[in-house]
């Protein structure tokens, strides 16, 4: 959307494809405290609806369909969509972000929607006065563990190491909440139950012992994989599947740019994604200008 603000303002006809929810993954963040301009923090959904309004006001058109493939044809780039359309364009910015990684343990798939969840904002309300596990040790895991204490009686954070990766400020907050417990050096090896989740098997990696813990729900936030499946044959990816770009967001294909979490980089945050978007939008503008002068 940020890239769209730049291309829209440059009077370039801009179409944004979104297959899930306008705004991207930050819409499920209860509060964003590190995005500049909001000293008291802002909810992910408020932030993205403001950005959406801004993008639309510069003429960005948003279409709620997915992209399935990109085809190159001379200087045209053709985007194939989930509703079987083909959209022909001169430039594309790939900003498809990431999606959460599954645990890949027995029971996870079976109980997805029956106690296993990947969205605290969506499903927290079903665990009122229940006992739940949050798996992970990063910002999302700890932030959502704190959020989930609004509903759950007890939240146990299961982490495979003996310290967290999350920001210090989140760690301190989590450590100070009595209803959050930490289970260190441990992983879940199985999820069991009848109709819904009733227990998990926890393996301590230091001692190799496995215990069964009674539990009502499991929220999984162990990291992300890039959504690059639909472009992997078109642009160069790094060994983890992220798109490699130059410092102006250009990929190895002329006219195709990438921005945000999908890019090979160190820090994946809203502020950096927005920075990438501004850069990519400007690069597109320059690319189109160049195409036009070459023609003349």
């Amino acid at each position: 959307m940020t890239a769209g603000i730049y291309t829209g303002r440059a009077k370039l006809k801009t179409l944004l494809l979104e297959e899930k929810a306008i705004g991207g993954e930050i819409v499920v963040a209860d509060i964003v405290e590190n995005y500049p301009g909001f000293p008291k923090g802002i909810s992910g959904s408020d932030l993205t609806s403001a950005i959406e309004e801004q993008a639309r006001s510069f003429g960005v058109e948003i279409c709620e369909i997915g992209a399935t493939r990109i085809e190159l044809n001379g200087e045209n780039r053709i985007v194939h969509t989930t509703d079987d359309r083909m959209i022909t364009t001169k430039t594309i910015i790939i900003a498809a972000g990431t999606q959460n990684i599954k645990l890949n343990v027995p029971g996870e798939k079976l109980f997805t929607g029956r106690g296993v969840s990947y969205c605290a904002q969506c499903d927290g309300a079903f665990f009122k006065d229940k006992e739940i596990i949050v798996v992970g040790g990063g910002d999302t895991a700890i932030g959502d563990a704190i959020f989930l204490t609004r509903f759950a009686r007890k939240v146990s954070v299961v982490h495979r190491r003996d310290k967290l990766r999350a920001e210090k400020i989140l760690q301190e907050r989590a450590f100070s909440i009595p209803s959050i417990e930490f289970i260190w050096d441990s992983v879940i090896t199985g999820i069991e139950g009848k109709k819904t989740v009733e227990a998990v098997s926890l393996k301590n990696l230091k001692t190799d012992t496995v215990v069964t813990k009674r539990i009502d729900g499991v929220f999984i936030f162990i990291g992300n994989n890039p959504n690059t499946g639909f472009v992997k044959d078109i642009v160069t990816l790094d060994e983890s599947g992220y798109i490699i770009t130059d410092e102006n967001m250009g990929t190895n294909q002329p006219g195709i740019f990438a921005a945000g979490d999908i890019r090979s980089k160190m820090v994946r945050q809203v502020a950096t994604a927005v920075g990438d978007g501004a850069m990519a939008g400007s690069s597109v503008q320059r690319y189109i200008e160049k195409l036009e002068t070459v023609k003349k």
Partner: peptide, 10 residues
């Protein structure tokens, strides 16, 4: 659905 679920309207 729940009102706070961004994926539900779809």
């Amino acid at each position: 659905v729940t009102p706070s679920c961004p994926y539900c309207p779809k």
